[in-house]
Simulated scan of single mutants.
Amino acid sequence: MHAEALSQGARGTAPARAVRLDDVRDEQLLTGLLSMLVGAPRARSVAGGLLGERGSIAAVLATSDERLAQLGADPQCLGALRLVREITRSVLSRRTVERPTITDSSAIVDLLHAEMAHLPFEQFRVLFLDARHRLLRIETLARGSVRSASVHPSEVARRALELGASAVVLVHNHPSGDPEPSRQDQIVTQRMAAALATLDIDLYDHLVIAPGGHVSFRARGLL
């Protein structure tokens, strides 16, 4: 560190934001990927801009191509990011091919987190399960604003009956970054559980996904 910087610190100047190891690793990885296409100087500039705006590689990969272009990613960079995005989804999706049970598989949550945690809008998905709680299908039933995505219980019930599902898991994300269920989340969940119960369909769980993790209504004793 230069003497001038040391002297400023000694005078009580506010210190720079601490750099996390994960931040450094993400920048190195993204720069390395892009430098194979556009050269190191340009790659560092683009990687720095994307990570400065979105915060992590995971968030960058979850960002739309249109927004990435606005942040400085040219067509070559977009192509590389799109390829990595699809490879990641393919790997995670393959882990769910053998119809894992929702009770013992982390693959489903990993896939949902990768696809939903960093979305800039709320999305509502439903996992349809058979009588042994094996995954039948994952479907997106609604996309909302930054604040909300709503699905009527009749939509979930109709689709469950069409697929022959005995149970469902609701999933939605919180773009705010906080996975804690809101009061409205709890009200919607209770209404959904009551409506599905009339058709002998079990609401097994409701997951709230956010960048920092997820919350399970079942684990919290809210179902």
Rank of each mutant, 00 (worst) to 15 (best):
F217K: 06
P120W: 00
A157E: 14
L112R: 09
L81R: 13
L222Y: 08
L119E: 05
G39Q: 10
L61M: 01
V188L: 02
L61I: 01
H118P: 05
L78D: 10
L6Y: 06
E98C: 11
C77Y: 00
V156A: 08
E155M: 03
L34C: 08
R11N: 05
S176I: 03
V46A: 12
S182C: 03
L68F: 08
D74I: 04
L161M: 13
S166N: 07
A43W: 00
V188P: 01
I108Y: 09
Q28A: 15
L112V: 10
P100G: 08
V171Q: 01
Q8K: 15
P100C: 11
L196H: 12
V91M: 07
R159H: 11
D104Q: 14
D200Y: 08
A197Y: 02
L30V: 10
A18M: 10
G55M: 07
E115P: 01
L78E: 09
L223G: 02
L68N: 10
L111C: 04
D130S: 06
L141A: 06
A10W: 04
D185E: 02
D202K: 04
T63I: 04
M1P: 13
S35T: 10
R94P: 00
L196V: 09
R183P: 00
R143G: 12
S150T: 15
E53F: 06
Q184L: 02
L92E: 13
A3M: 04
V146R: 13
A210G: 15
M116D: 01
E139V: 14
A73V: 11
Q70D: 05
D23T: 12
A80H: 09
A117S: 12
V38H: 04
G72S: 07
A157D: 14
S150A: 12
T13D: 13
S106I: 14
A10Q: 08
L81D: 08
A210R: 03
I87M: 11
G72C: 09
H152L: 10
P153R: 04
Q70H: 01
A5Q: 15
R147A: 08
L71S: 04
R95A: 13
V208Y: 01
S154F: 09
G12V: 03
R11S: 15
R143C: 01
R143Y: 02
G164N: 05
T198C: 09
L135F: 05
S56H: 06
A10M: 13
H133T: 10
D205L: 06
R183K: 13
S45L: 11
G52Q: 08
T198P: 00
A40M: 13
G221N: 09
L51S: 04
D110H: 09
S106W: 12
D130A: 03
A3Y: 04
D205H: 07
I108K: 01
V60E: 01
L127A: 09
P211D: 06
A197W: 02
L141T: 00
T96C: 15
H174D: 03
Q186W: 00
R132A: 15
P75V: 11
L29D: 12
I102F: 15
T63Q: 09
P15I: 04
M36G: 14
A10V: 11
V215M: 03
Q28V: 06
A43R: 04
A160L: 07
S182E: 07
A3H: 01
L203C: 06
T103L: 15
L34P: 14
R220I: 00
V169K: 02
R20D: 14
L203H: 08
